[in-house]
Amino acid sequence: MSSNLERRYRALLRVLPVWYRAEREEEMVGIFLAGRDGDLDAEYGWPGWGEAWATLGLAVRVRLRARSRAGDVVRLVASAGLLGHVVSAAQGAAAVVRFGGVWTGWFDALVVAAFVGLVAGRRVMARVAVAVAALCGVVVALRAALSAGPVGWVLVVQVPLWVTAVAVLLGFHREAPPVARVRWSVAAVVGAVVGAVWGFLVPLSMAGFGGAWLVAAAVVVVFRPWAGVRAGTPVSAG
């Protein structure tokens, strides 16, 4: 008869895909229980936060592994999202040059650094940069909410960033395949040039902000960077 501890650990393992559990569950349960001791632990013990965190990490890596549909979609959302922010940054910078206004250079630098990190295979750099940008976005949204500011408009800007950040953090784990460097780089340059011309010619507005995402979507469709992914080679941890 299985103990409460075993039942709790098996419940935790349900975050793993069915095919993975079919292959590994009994082995993992055996190792886990071998490291635990005593009737009290078997009756009242829990797997613990460390084991839960490690299992969740394993689940993300297995579910979003290279050549899996879910993994490929999440990584496309992450890369395209960062490209959209690069286009938006170019658009905003050009608009400031032409029409004046406040330039959020630090934010643009973060999203550009995240994109460059992704393309250069610097996974950690990309993850840290986009996470910092997203956290700053949370602060901006909270301040707008607390000061009865235009929360709706703030969210229109920040939600795409949060979605992008989550996709980067989940999709570009240690075993994730690298992105197609040349295709994404060319797409980003073309998108940034179009965004900059747009920002230089047309005063920035919410419609213009949406235009940056249309430009990003267009260059992604044209360059099809997902077709150039080299499967199997993980991105470096640098």
């Binding site: 590994r24 993992m28 190792i31 886990f32 490291g35 460390g50 084991e51 965190w53 490690a54 299992t55 969740l56 990490g57 394993l58 890596r61 297995v62 240690r174 075993e175 993980p234």
Partner: peptide
């Protein structure tokens, strides 16, 4: 090594 961590490492080494 947590069990989840061990299998992450083993999967990678096997791959």
């Amino acid at each position: 090594l947590r069990v989840g961590t061990l299998y992450g490492v083993l999967d990678r080494l096997v791959a």
